[in-house]
Nucleic acid binder design. Structure first.
Length: 274
DNA sequence: CCCGGCGCCTGAGGGC
DNA sequence: TGCCCTCAGGCGCCGG
């Protein structure tokens, strides 16, 4: 399930597309495309840049518009040769969309669960997206002071829900929303308003530490996630809380517990995390 | 306005 | 062996 580190890894991989040109587009699952006339907006357009907004992959095109893609749980973007893709799409049942490129072969969009979306955004819409998204934890604006304001505004909610709230902090999903509080030794069940200054600093430091480490390790391949070459990340080997219910805490030996917060599984150590 | 809950999807895994 | 149930989860949307 691509969260910030996974999307960042894909975006880094897709930097090779800058300067390339989209020559064609094929889809077998039009329902995922949220913009009418999508194909017309992209054919013949030069790719200026590839970037990330929250968990979205954004491909900026000449002329001011951009392709915005959200991979949701099982979306994959793969850069591969034209040849293998043409052979592939007859057989690969989860390959739903193909962008044909002038220089780099093709960009394939795979998605097992069919939740992922593609759309076109103009400059105004992109600006609105950024404005509505909340602070990016890897940006300079993400400081303990900023985090303190965010928590204060949502003081009745759990720490876990705030970390996952895209309008508050942009890019954290269910896996890192367990790993970050574990690293900070703060219970994900705590109310956002109950954290003191030191705990907020700690949560801020752990957010940066965990997300940066996950980017360095090219993301977490817990189940379906792959990078733009189809390879797994390796942060799954460094998980200390997520998916560890019933196992011993790596720090204190207590059994890791699982709780449901916002209808999602949350993992924590009942001894270490206060 | 905010919150909880559901629906979108498919595959994996467990029980019988 | 095969069927059915549950679970996985981001997020848009709906109703209270």
């Amino acid at each position: 399930m691509p969260e910030l580190p996974e999307v960042q890894t894909i975006v880094n991989d897709l930097q090779v597309l800058a300067g390339d040109k989209i020559t064609g587009f094929w889809t077998r699952f039009a329902k995922a495309i949220k913009t009418k006339g999508f194909e017309k907006e992209i054919i013949g357009k030069k790719i200026l840049a590839v970037r990330r907004i929250g968990k979205n992959v954004v491909i900026d095109l000449a002329g001011g518009k951009a392709i915005v893609m959200h991979l949701k749980m099982t979306g994959k973007l793969l850069v591969t040769s034209h040849q293998s893709s043409v052979i592939g799409h007859q057989k690969e049942k989860h390959l739903h969309h193909i962008f044909y490129l002038k220089k780099n072969g093709v960009l394939e969009f795979h998605d097992i669960r069919k939740f992922a979306t593609l759309e076109i955004a103009d400059e105004k819409k992109l600006a609105k997206m950024i404005e509505e998204r909340g602070v990016d934890p890897l940006s300079r604006e993400f400081t303990a002071k900023k985090l303190s304001e965010i928590l204060e505004k949502r003081k009745g909610k759990s720490v876990k829900s705030v970390l996952m709230d895209q309008a508050a902090i942009s890019g954290i999903g269910n896996i890192y929303a367990s790993e970050i509080p574990f690293d900070a030794k703060i219970s994900p069940l705590r109310k956002a308003g109950s954290l003191d200054k030191d705990e907020i600093s700690s949560l801020c430091r752990s957010t940066l530490k965990i997300l940066r480490k996950a980017v360095r390790l090219r993301g977490t391949s817990f189940s379906d996630y792959r990078d733009a070459s189809g390879k797994k990340g390796s942060f799954q080997n460094h998980l200390k809380a997520y998916g560890k219910a019933g196992e011993k805490c790596s720090a204190c030996g207590m059994i890791i517990e699982k709780a449901i917060v916002g209808q999602r599984s949350t993992f924590y150590c009942p001894r270490c995390q206060k």
